[in-house]
Simulated scan of single mutants.
Amino acid sequence: MSPEEAEDEDAAWADSADRKIAIRALAEHRAEEHLSSAEHDRRRELAQNARTVGELRALFTDLPAPHPLLGEAIMGGPAWVAQAARAGGGAGLLLITGGIIVVAAILAGWWIPAVIFACLLAVAAIFASATR
Results as ranks from 00 to 15, higher is better:
G76W: 05
G76H: 04
G77E: 12
G77T: 14
G77Q: 14
G77A: 13
P78S: 07
P78G: 14
P78L: 09
A79V: 15
V81P: 00
A82D: 08
Q83A: 15
Q83I: 08
A84T: 11
A84I: 07
A85E: 11
A87I: 01
A87M: 01
A87Q: 05
G89N: 08
G89H: 10
G90S: 02
G90T: 03
G90A: 07
A91N: 05
G92N: 00
G92Q: 00
L93P: 01
L94F: 09
L95T: 05
L95D: 11
I96P: 01
I96H: 04
I96D: 02
I96Y: 01
I96V: 12
T97N: 02
G98Q: 09
G98A: 02
G98F: 00
I100D: 00
I100E: 00
I100Q: 05
I101Y: 02
I101D: 05
I101L: 12
I101N: 03
V102N: 04
V102Q: 01
V103R: 06
V103G: 04
A104E: 03
A104R: 07
A105P: 02
A105H: 05
A105S: 12
A105D: 04
I106S: 11
L107A: 15
A108K: 10
G109L: 09
W110F: 15
W111P: 03
W111R: 14
W111D: 02
P113I: 13
P113N: 04
P113Y: 10
A114Q: 02
A114S: 04
V115M: 13
I116D: 08
I116R: 07
I116G: 04
F117P: 11
A118I: 04
A118W: 02
C119K: 08
C119Q: 05
C119Y: 05
C119T: 14
L120C: 14
L121Q: 05
A122H: 08
A122K: 08
